[in-house]
């Protein structure tokens, strides 16, 4: 089997580490070799963050470069456009439609581009956009946006939902397992 490359991108503090932990756990359970690469430190302070997850029979590099990602899961709209060049031609993006203004927009140095998703679609990217905040709040917390998006991704990857739910039980703090399972299901069925 070829290596599958998934990027999880967003804004520092949005919970991409838990999403990658869940995905890594799932693919380990499936018997794949897994490599996950994270970003810590300065970028976590509200900056653009990216996590790479790679799995397959044999995986060497822990990172994903331009033109290599099968899927991008973006926690924020602008970040989807930023990392779109990392997508394989014909790849898919799962994107939360939430907008978080970056500092150059806040200071008025530039504006938030409005048409990013339309442009991605026009470029032939398979865009799965979802307002992940509403189901996250329904599940119990705005912080569950990450798991809602994983639910959406799960539908595309084709593994049975039960396996994801098992991986959630194994990788999430027991206190929040039920909330996250609900968030996952809302994303999966969205």
């Amino acid at each position: 089997m070829m290596t599958t490359n998934i990027m999880i991108v967003g804004v520092g503090g949005q919970g991409s580490l838990l999403a990658s932990k869940l995905l890594g756990r799932l693919m380990m359970n499936e018997g794949y070799e897994v490599k996950v690469s994270e970003v810590h430190g300065m970028s976590q302070r509200g900056g653009s963050v990216v996590t790479y997850v790679r799995y397959g029979e044999k995986v060497y590099s822990p990172i994903i470069d331009k033109g290599e990602a099968d899927f991008i899961v973006s926690f924020e709209k602008l970040e989807a456009a930023r990392y779109a060049p990392y997508l394989k031609i014909g790849g898919a993006i799962v994107v939360n439609t939430q907008e978080i203004d970056p500092m150059p927009v806040i200071t008025g140095a530039t504006v938030y581009p409005e048409s990013v998703l339309d442009n991605l679609k026009a470029d032939g990217v398979n865009v799965y956009d979802i307002d992940a905040l509403t189901p996250a709040l329904e599940a119990g917390s705005s912080k569950a946006v990450n798991i809602v998006l994983m639910g959406k991704l799960a539908k595309l990857l084709g593994l049975p939902a039960e396996k994801w739910i098992q991986a959630i039980r194994e990788s999430v703090n027991p206190k929040f397992v039920e909330m996250n399972i609900k968030a996952f299901e809302l994303g999966y069925n969205a």
Binding site: G12, S43, R45, S48, G67, R82, L87, P104, V116, A122
Partner: peptide
């Protein structure tokens, strides 16, 4: 060899780290 990729049409504003 280089992989093909799409180049974004939009001017993407940077997102530097900020004070919380």
């Amino acid at each position: 060899e280089a992989a093909g990729f799409i180049s974004s049409r939009d001017e993407i504003p940077g997102r530097p780290p900020v004070m919380c």
